[in-house]
Simulated scan of single mutants.
Amino acid sequence: MPTILVLFGLRVVVYPNDHRPAHVHVQGNGCEAVFKLCCPDGPPALRENYGFTQKDLARVAEGLARNLAALCAAWRQLHDDY
């Protein structure tokens, strides 16, 4: 699973054999969250959360939104379509 981005020490990954819609897994500190990217225009939306606080999730969502174009491009490179 390629790490696409590192935000605040958390890994943002896209699994090569994953399903649509376009989404990323955010992992670190014993927690994981999944955000739908809502490509190409966003904003990213939380799908699942395992252990992150609401404050952390808001911070991650902002970081994903700032990097949305690159994240959507990485998804397309691995999966062809959103």
Rank of each mutant, 00 (worst) to 15 (best):
M1F: 10
M1Q: 09
T3R: 14
I4L: 12
L5C: 02
V6R: 12
L7I: 12
G9M: 09
L10A: 00
L10N: 01
L10P: 00
R11N: 11
V12H: 06
V12D: 05
V13I: 15
V13C: 09
V14S: 04
Y15A: 11
Y15F: 12
N17Q: 15
D18L: 05
D18G: 08
R20M: 11
R20F: 12
R20P: 11
R20K: 14
P21K: 06
A22D: 11
A22W: 05
A22V: 06
A22R: 07
H23Y: 03
H23E: 03
V24T: 04
H25C: 06
V26L: 02
N29S: 09
N29E: 12
G30W: 08
G30K: 10
G30P: 09
E32M: 14
E32Q: 13
E32A: 07
A33R: 08
A33E: 03
V34Q: 10
V34F: 00
F35I: 07
L37F: 12
L37T: 08
L37V: 11
L37P: 10
C38W: 02
C38Y: 02
C39Y: 07
P40H: 01
D41H: 14
G42P: 07
A45S: 15
L46H: 10
L46K: 14
R47T: 06
R47W: 10
E48R: 15
G51S: 03
F52H: 02
F52L: 01
F52Y: 14
Q54M: 07
Q54T: 06
K55V: 04
K55M: 01
K55C: 00
D56Q: 15
A58T: 07
R59K: 14
V60S: 03
A61F: 00
E62L: 11
E62S: 12
G63I: 03
G63K: 09
A65S: 13
A65C: 09
A65N: 13
A65T: 14
A65L: 13
N67P: 07
N67R: 13
L68K: 03
L68M: 02
A69N: 11
A70K: 14
L71I: 05
C72K: 01
C72I: 01
A73Y: 01
A74E: 11
W75P: 00
W75E: 00
W75N: 00
Q77I: 06
Q77N: 12
L78M: 15
L78P: 00
L78T: 01
H79Q: 05
H79Y: 05
H79V: 06
D80K: 15
D81F: 13
D81I: 12
Y82L: 11
Y82I: 04
